[in-house]
Design a protein around this nucleic acid. Sequence first.
DNA 1: ACCTATGTTATCGC
DNA 2: GGCGATAACATAGG
Length: 261
Amino acid sequence: MPELPDVEVFRKYIESKAMNQEISGVDVNTKRILKNVTSKKLASALPGLSFTGTKRHGKYLFLDTGDGFSVMLHFGMTGDVRYLTDGDKTGKHDRVVFHFDNGKALAYSNVRLLGAVSLVKDIGTFLGEKEAGPDALDYSNDQFKEAVGSRKSMIKTALMDQSVIAGLGNVYTDEILYQSRIHPEKKASGLSEKEKNALFNNMRKVLKKAIEKDTDVSRLPRTYLLPRRKEGAECPSCSGKIEKKYVSGRPTYYCPRCQGK
DNA sequence: ACCTATGTTATCGC
DNA sequence: GGCGATAACATAGG
């Protein structure tokens, strides 16, 4: 489920479990998940080091080693992490497992192989190469309005464009647009000041709420679309029907009555 | 067997 | 270069 809130929850999880434990070895079970690094390199660079800190930018997660480079984790659509303690077994989809000298381990799992694991020397350089825009939660209201308002694409496309805003994906973009009562196909540059302000405020509200609830959709407020993100579901606000339409090639759920064009 | 899916990247045409 | 549409990647579940 990795969008910004999911990756932030992963980050906190790793921060609370896997810090400052000496890495004893790295198992690469699926070489295809590695990008710009060989399994040999990964397995030789990390032993003796430990994870000393974490950083997240958009959907990218970085585990610092304190030795001038970080492990970069990207999760695609199905990535996850698990801290393995005594007796926990690795699963079929654990693509890379970082073992610690205390017997525990951190597993990066991914059903589909759309994600990536890599080593990154300089995070800023890496993000520059990826053309990542500012993180969604680092934007000021004015910067946000300028970045979004200058786009000629549909608002949903602009919000999901990682070079404009890093971190928003298909699911949370639907929620943000729903909360803001804005149709996903409205032209970004045609939004009013009021609409842009609402978008900015709801973006922060939705992302923070999702993080606060550990991205458990069943714990989100009743006024949220996510728990009912299904075609034909009842709109939590007007009791109309939720519609599904492909926007920018992605399945998009919205309430045509609340989110007029 | 067919369709769907939380992401990214490349390609084609306008 | 921007933008929309489309496909590709790989896999599990309905």
